[in-house]
Design a protein around this nucleic acid. Structure first.
Lengths: 189, 189
DNA sequence: TCATGATAGTCATTTTTCTGACTACTCACA
DNA sequence: TGTGAGTAGTCAGAAAAATGACTATCATGA
């Protein structure tokens, strides 16, 4: 049960509706989880039943009403317990990795296309995350913010998001370069 | 269906038994997938039924018999189709990220412990992967190997494994440093 | 006025992944 | 002589994640 805790952690930033939460998770909350809207609505329902989050109806004009959720004390306790428990190892699960593993037996042209596309996506996400970082730290410098800010959790995970995407981009480009060189070399023979 | 293709890609390296495959996946095949033995045996059975892999019984003395599997032509075609299809976005799914996201609301001592432990694991994995890289490229230099080697898929994914774990380790250490500094600062107030 | 897109959400089902509990044989070591 | 570790694999079932198909309302522009 992991999405569960990801939702709790995300809700620490303040009240969110299922829809807003879905937006955040769709981008991948600073790359730390990813989920479909339906999963989030379902999870929120479960969390509410168990008293780990509480929702309140907000009546809106000019758009559908919504329910804003916040983490309860029981929810905080749950997060605390989760943090104390041992974490399972991190892993990247990336279709592209599987494809590259098979690169020697498979058409490289499409692979190169996908790697290039992925590099572009990574670039876009880096910018997104960096904008988020700037917003989070406000007018303070990073060091100052990390020392004295009062909500650094999202900042730290976002830092990792940036690092991950940079690595992602660099690896894609490097791999493209290698595959391309080999294509030319083979074409000549 | 993703484990499926990860298994196919892993079997390209040569015939493997379910048990050997499990060994590889337990480490996380160069970090590109991770799975339990039972999952792999199940997946191999399915793949065999569908004719994507074929197994042959190897009678052994002094230890139980085993079945070695290899990818069939149909399996190669399947991998080809998979490569052509669009990949879903990569994501890191890491309990530790969730915990750090909640760092402001949660006991930091245990968190620091876990981050430190994770950094050690990352260090160990880096060494493992680097040894694997050396083994794969033999006595050639990296550039030379990537240009002219005939099985570079695993090498490329392994490169990513190293980069990922380095980033992992650095982020853990950085986060520990930040959290520790804040503990001291707060203790003084 | 009609279509599109954003907001806000639900229901049901399938697919995929993970876990626990087993069987069996051999070797080495105490 | 039996206990643990390594090799090799199976079965059943639970938990988690993903998908497809829906319902509404409002605003905006063509």
């Amino acid at each position: 049960m992991a999405l569960r805790h990801a939702v709790l952690a995300a809700l620490l930033d303040g009240e969110l509706s299922g829809y807003q939460l879905a937006k955040a998770f769709d981008v991948g909350v600073a790359n730390f989880w990813y989920a479909q809207p339906q999963q989030l609505y379902a999870e929120l329902t479960r969390l509410e039943q168990q008293g780990l989050v509480a929702g309140r109806e907000v009546v809106q004009e000019s758009r559908p009403n919504k329910r804003l959720f916040h983490v309860t004390d029981a929810g905080l306790a749950e997060l605390e317990a989760f943090t104390a428990a041992s974490a399972r190892p991190a892993f990247v699960r990336d279709d592209l990795m599987v494809k590259v593993q098979a690169a020697d037996s498979v058409d490289t042209a499409t692979l190169i296309g996908q790697l290039t596309e992925r590099a572009d996506i990574a670039r876009a996400r880096i910018e997104l995350f960096e904008a988020l970082l700037r917003r989070l730290r406000g007018d303070r410098g990073e060091e100052d913010f990390l020392r004295h800010g009062d909500r650094i959790g999202p900042y730290l995970t976002c830092l990792r998001g940036v690092a991950f995407e940079q690595e992602n981009r660099d690896w894609c480009l490097r791999t493209v370069a290698v595959l391309e060189e080999r294509r030319h070399t083979r074409a000549r023979n």
